[in-house]
């Protein structure tokens, strides 16, 4: 609970109670009891509910559940935005095994439920900015990645953490086409992985993660473009050399390894200065590091963000 005791974005406290009430009302309106929904994966998610925090500015309203779970980039289930919601039924996220590999104390394969049992889930409302120029505000729940890494105990040679998505065309029909080199691989630098904000996501809107959002577990680093958050993770590997990540392999001039949200560094084909918030017609300004500069900017002191986009 130590993470929840200190507010990292002071402004949100102003709207805290109101948003929370709205949220409860919303969940009720869609017929989802908070506790009932959350308890499918873990009873502790439900227990954590009263401690929910809003990691959002005043102008950030929660994106409706239907949009969060109906408008997704998850090419493993097709390249259209509504394809994942339509096609992800073939994924079986329970039971789920994850391989812990590389420079760690105890490499091996673990059962996800068992692995997560000792942790206390938290809720984080984060802005989510897609590299394509749209954004949402999403109430994730999960475990701070730093807590998980502490348990895994990586060695001194671990400079990067690599996350690999499931590769199984039977469960993920989109993998029958080689739109991207499968499996999907993403990675973070060790300090990024250990940042307070980085979340090992197991749920959204107080419910277990739907398949189309990356069930049973995905990554979220909210100051980076959405594609950095690998979904349906089956392997976590600690390595010394910077891993080759999927979009960077597919189009290196368009998608860098860092992929930090940066309104001053444009995508070759479109501006990143502004974004469309889901449901809104007019664009709003994109914030440096997606508004999380206070928490993350110090990690990039001295780094040329134009060259390392």
């Amino acid at each position: 609970m130590h993470l929840l005791s200190k507010p990292l974005l002071p402004t949100r406290d102003i709207t805290d109670e109101k948003t929370f009430v709205d949220r409860r009302a919303f969940l009720t309106s869609i017929g989802v009891g908070l506790a009932a929904g959350a308890s499918v994966l873990s009873p502790r998610l439900a227990a954590a509910a009263p401690a929910f925090r809003r990691w959002q500015g005043e102008e950030d309203k929660l994106t409706p559940y239907a949009d969060v779970t109906g408008y997704n980039n998850f090419y493993e289930f097709g390249t259209g935005k509504s394809d994942p919601a339509q096609n992800a039924g073939s994924l079986h996220p329970h039971p789920w095994k994850i391989e812990i590999a590389g420079d760690v104390k105890k490499p091996g394969i673990v059962d996800l439920d068992e692995f997560l049992r000792p942790f206390q889930p938290v809720e984080r409302v984060y802005r989510h900015r897609c590299v394509e120029g749209w954004s949402m505000v999403i109430p994730w729940s999960g475990i701070p990645l730093r807590d998980i890494i502490a348990r895994i105990e990586p060695g001194t040679k671990a400079k990067f953490v690599e996350f690999t998505t499931l590769h199984d065309p039977k469960q993920m029909p989109g993998q029958n086409r080689s739109v991207l080199p499968w499996p999907y691989v993403e990675a973070l630098r060790m300090d990024e992985a250990m940042n307070l904000l980085t979340l090992f996501v197991t749920g959204v809107y107080g419910k277990p993660l739907p398949n189309q959002n990356g069930a049973p577990v995905r990554l979220c680093a909210p100051w980076k473009y959405g594609f950095k958050g690998g979904k349906s993770i089956v392997r976590i590997r600690f390595v010394e050399a910077q891993p080759h990540t999927t979009w960077n392999i597919a189009a290196p001039e368009e998608y860098g390894f860092y992929a930090n949200v940066n309104p001053t560094v444009d995508h070759p084909r479109w501006t990143q200065a502004r974004e469309h918030r889901a449901g809104e017609f007019f664009k709003r300004k994109t914030l440096m590091f997606n508004g999380y500069a206070e928490q993350v900017a110090s990690m990039y002191t001295g780094l040329d963000l134009r060259a390392n986009f």
Partner: peptide, 14 residues
């Protein structure tokens, strides 16, 4: 019809 019944995608302009 979609626009007036709020049936457009999450990015209505797109």
């Amino acid at each position: 019809i979609d626009a007036f019944t709020n049936q457009l995608a999450a990015e209505p302009v797109k």
